[in-house]
Nucleic acid binder design. Structure first.
Lengths: 211, 211, 211, 211
DNA sequence: AATGAATGAGTGTTCATTCAT
DNA sequence: AATGAATGAACACTCATTCAT
């Protein structure tokens, strides 16, 4: 039987890596991989530089862990939303977008796309991983949603190899804007309006019913 | 027959700067500012590292020059297209997008948005410059185009402070994709289809006439 | 018997700075600031180049530290000698000069004057610091000694704004000679004779009693 | 028969090297050898950097030329003054010092001692040259003057291998002070007083007659 | 004779990584 | 587990030197 009062440091043993990943994501997103100093990451996480190496064997591995660990919760949720949904495509689209934004766009995970766009060239295998596990799954998910609507008749027929990406682009851009340090910055309180505008315009372009 | 002996160097004070900027843009876009080695930029331009410093006083100044020199021709063209156009909004939109893509999207200038998104955090004043001279002017340009259509009656009323940015987002993403080394990569020969799809979807979402 | 395996490095945060300053003073005096390579300083101190930067943020700060740390013990000793002395001016002069030479002239601190003369032009604020903390205090000290003798009657009246500097000049030159690598070099074993000659000539020029 | 009107550029052909040496001496004295940029020397002389290499094969050769060319007129004058003089030792000493200061101390040649002290360590053969051609000849000259006085009976007997150097030291220091950029700086208009004080003190220490 | 664009070796500085404690 | 002093490879930047013009 273990003591029911866990000393703080024992719990931290498990907690530490996530704190490190959080700090690392912040810095990588803000300054880019190369310009991020591990000293700064460590300081943000409240540990020494050496401690980082207890959990990640190199700066590159830290980056990979940041990406890999971050996406785990990214896609799964949305996939199950679509499978179980029964209403109209419009309702579904609104639901998916809002769910996505609440869970991802509003969190620090929203920094991932910018990070990957910026660093893909320097880490090809990480880029491949991200492409397969995030981009491809994300597009398939949207394609599924569109296909469902086309089959139901409330979404116009369209090329499902291309349209999903175009449809999603403004959403990705909004995530990038959040982290672009003043370029195309959007005030926090205006984001709902942007989301609204984005959804309305998108629906008008895909719904079968004249609006 | 040209002389087979290449001179160790050649006086080209006039042509040099642009060659250096071209090479620098390539590397900055591909690897990011920090990960770009001036040695490599110099080699790409066919000069020695020291030569870079004859024209740009530091790596940072080189980046600034890349951005500043690149945008000069960027915006002006499109602005004049809109002012002089006389036809329908649909025709104008198609024209503007195609002109833009031919002149910017298809050139290496298409790397600029990615570069600025990635480095804005590290170079705040450069970010401000880019915001004012490229982003703001670009949005004003699109807003003008929409306003014109709304006044004519062939474009639906909409919030002109938000819609332009949403409308343009997929276009910016396409430029970013071109340079993201495998993430969301689009095959060169499929780009016209993407453009087509983007234009069609966008028009459906803004035109007053039911399609 | 000590362990024959030298560790790759050793923690000596306390001893390090002084060792680095010692090594730096040697090189700066021997070759000048600009011609001194930090690699060499580090090697002399038995550390790597990077270690220097753990203690001094730049080459210039290293120079400043060398000067600042060196003079702390320089002047104070002599000042107290004069204050407490009770004998004749001749005895006092002999004592001051010998004390000075034993503590400064014979140590590596004797390199400071040459270093400062050579680098004052490149580091104006360091020069000002040296002027105020070493030169001015040194001259005041000699002036005090002369004033005391004039008041007692065993030293001739003289202009105390000028004479101290002239009187001290040969002493400073002897320190410079020690470090001028062959120019005006004086053999180590002849130094006592030089000191003797300098003292005798100086006394003859300032003492009131005909010699 | 040559044209009696020499165009300016033809005379400059010979004049140029001296202008270059003058500019080089200024910079070497002010900043030291290593910290002096040939760019700056060239600019001071009003020529391009490449032109320097038409006259001097390297930076080091320029330094050597500066020293060698400078000393030619240095010593000769004083030597002849002593040989021909007929009056008392006091008069001779005053004459020699004033002649020296007017011709050397007051000119830019006064920068030479500082330059040689600073750079002797980096240029051993130049140091040897300077030692033999300037220092040794200078000391011999002073020794000759003292010997003459001792033989006449108006100068006290003293060790002629040591005393000359001590006697001359304040003079050398005054030359160094002129170029030490604020360290021990002496106001231009106070120099005569310093000279006066130096001469009086020196005479009191060497003259046989009680003063 | 004179220029100045171009070079590239050399050095100050940074920072990911290691390891004794 | 955690630290932080030490390392050294890497890179920005400088400047003496070269050479086509």
């Amino acid at each position: 039987m273990t003591c029911p009062f866990k000393p703080r440091w024992e719990r931290r043993k498990d907690a530490r890596p996530q704190e490190l990943l959080d700090a690392a994501l912040d810095h990588f997103v803000a300054r880019g991989f190369a310009a991020t100093r591990l000293d700064d990451v460590a300081k943000s996480a409240g540990v020494s530089k050496g401690t980082l190496y207890l959990y990640f064997s190199s700066k590159e591995e830290l980056l990979k862990a940041v990406v890999r660990e971050s996406i785990v919760p990214l896609i799964g949720q949305a996939e199950s939303v679509i499978e179980q949904f029964e209403g109209s495509s419009e309702e579904l689209f609104r639901l998916v977008i809002h769910t996505w934004w609440d869970n991802v766009g509003a969190s620090k995970l929203s920094g991932l796309p910018k990070l990957m766009m910026a660093e893909a060239g320097n880490f090809p295998d990480l880029a491949r991983f991200y492409q397969e596990e995030v981009v491809d799954r994300g597009e398939r998910l949207v394609a599924t949603m569109l296909k469902r609507g086309i089959d139901r008749g409330d979404i116009l027929p369209m090329d499902l190899t291309i349209a999903p990406r175009i449809l999603i682009a403004p959403m990705i851009m909004m995530m990038i804007w959040k982290h672009s340090n003043g370029v195309c910055a959007v005030e926090e309180e205006k984001l709902p309006e942007y989301l609204q505008c984005y959804i309305d315009m998108s629906l008008r372009s895909i719904l079968a019913s004249a609006k």
